[in-house]
C-alpha cells in the first residue's frame, strides 16, 4: 500500500474517533454544569475539558476567559482548532476523499452525509439547549461510520490502518480524560459532588453501567482507575486499546512478510507494562505521573508509526 494512502487511512481513523471523544467530553461537561452541585465551580468543568482535549493554549489565544458558550464554540466549530468536532470531520472527510477507492460505499456515504449536514449548521444548531441533541447526533454518525467499516470493509491493510488510528486515538483520549480528573480520583472523600464527578468520569467513557457489571459495588476512585486502565474487557480501557494496537500491528506485519520495527517493540513494551500493572502501585506512585507517562508514550508510538510506515 502507498504510504500516503496508509497515512490518510490512519488519520481518518484518528479524526473520526477524536470527533466522537470530544462529543463525549462535551456532553459530560454540559451535564455536570447542569447538575451544578457547586455552581461557583461551573467554569472548572469547561476548563478541564479544554485541558483534556489538549486545547487550552489554543483557546486562550482567541478568548480572554472561559465561558460555556466560548468553550463549546471552540470545541465544536472553530476552524482554528484542529481538535474541534467540525474540523475533525472536515479533516476526516479530506482524508477519506484522498483515499476514496479504499473506502466502501457505505463508509463514504456515512462520512458524506455527516459532512453535508455539518457544513450547513451554525451556532444556533449546537449552542444552549440544542447541544445535547447535537452531540448525540455526532456520536451516532461516528457509530454509523465505524459500523459501516466493520461490516463492509475488506480485511486488508486499508482496514488495519484505519483500526490502528482508531485504537491509538482511543488510548490517548482515555489517558487524557482520566488525567484531567486525577485529583478527583485521588481523593477518597465521598461527598455528593465527588460522587457526581466519579459518575461523570465513567459516563464520559460510556462505562457507567459497565462499571456496575464489573464490580457490582459502590463507585470508588481506585476502581474507576482500574477499570479504565487495566481491565481488558472494557473496550475503551488503556489495556484494551493497546491490545488492539498490538494486534493490528502484528496483522500488518503478517501482511508484509513479518516486517517489524520500533512501533511493534514500543507497543509491546507498553502493553506489557499495562498487563502486569497493579492499581495499588499506580495510585501510590501517583495517577497523574502514570497517565502523563502514558500520554507521552502514546504520542511517541504515534510518531514511531509515522516514521516506520509513512515517512520511511
Amino acid at each position: 500500500m502507498l504510504s500516503r494512502t496508509a497515512d490518510s487511512l490512519f488519520w481518518l481513523g484518528r479524526y473520526t474517533e477524536r470527533a466522537a471523544n470530544v462529543a463525549r467530553g462535551l456532553s459530560v461537561a454540559s451535564r455536570m454544569a447542569g447538575l451544578t452541585a457547586e455552581l461557583n465551580h461551573e467554569g472548572d468543568e469547561w476548563r478541564a475539558l479544554l485541558v483534556a482535549a489538549g486545547c487550552e493554549p489554543g483557546f486562550f489565544q482567541k478568548h480572554q476567559e472561559i465561558t460555556e458558550e466560548a468553550v463549546i464554540d471552540f470545541l465544536v466549530r472553530d476552524p482554528d482548532n484542529p481538535s474541534g468536532i467540525i474540523p475533525c470531520f472536515a479533516a476526516a472527510r479530506h482524508n477519506a476523499r484522498t483515499v476514496r477507492t479504499a473506502l466502501t460505499v457505505d463508509m463514504w456515504s456515512a462520512m458524506s452525509d455527516s459532512w453535508n449536514h455539518l457544513r450547513r449548521i451554525g451556532p444556533a444548531d449546537f449552542q444552549g439547549e440544542k447541544l445535547p441533541g447535537f452531540l448525540e447526533w455526532v456520536r451516532e454518525r461516528v457509530l454509523l461510520f465505524n459500523g459501516a467499516a466493520m461490516d463492509t470493509m475488506l480485511r486488508g491493510e486499508a482496514w488495519l490502518f484505519v483500526q490502528l488510528g482508531t485504537a491509538l486515538e482511543r488510548a490517548d483520549n482515555t489517558a487524557r480524560l482520566l488525567d484531567v480528573k486525577h485529583e478527583v480520583l485521588e481523593s477518597e472523600a465521598e461527598t455528593t459532588v465527588a460522587h457526581g464527578q466519579w459518575q461523570a468520569v465513567l459516563q464520559s467513557f460510556s462505562a457507567l453501567r459497565a462499571y456496575h457489571w464489573v464490580f457490582r459495588d459502590r463507585i470508588t476512585p481506585a476502581r474507576i482507575a482500574e477499570l479504565m486502565i487495566l481491565r481488558p474487557e472494557l473496550p475503551r480501557s488503556l489495556i484494551a486499546s493497546y491490545n488492539r494496537v498490538c494486534e493490528v500491528l502484528e496483522l500488518i506485519a503478517a501482511e508484509q512478510d513479518g516486517r517489524r520495527g520500533e512501533p511493534h517493540r514500543l507497543a509491546e513494551e507498553l502493553r506489557t507494562q499495562l498487563r502486569t500493572g497493579r492499581i495499588e502501585d499506580i495510585m501510590e506512585a501517583g495517577l497523574h505521573e502514570y497517565l502523563t507517562a502514558m500520554i507521552i508514550n502514546t504520542a511517541e508510538l504515534g510518531e514511531a508509526v509515522q516514521a516506520f510506515y509513512i515517512r520511511a
Binding site: R31, G34, P132, G196, I219
Partner: peptide, 25 residues
C-alpha cells in the same frame, strides 16, 4: 438534563442518581 440543560443550570438540584448504588448497598 437532556432537554433543559440551561434551565437546570439555574437551579441547585439535589441529585437522585445514587439510588441504584444505595439500593445495591
Amino acid at each position: 438534563l437532556r432537554l433543559f440543560p440551561r434551565l437546570m443550570a439555574r437551579h441547585r438540584i439535589a441529585p437522585v442518581n445514587r439510588y441504584p448504588e444505595d439500593l445495591l448497598a
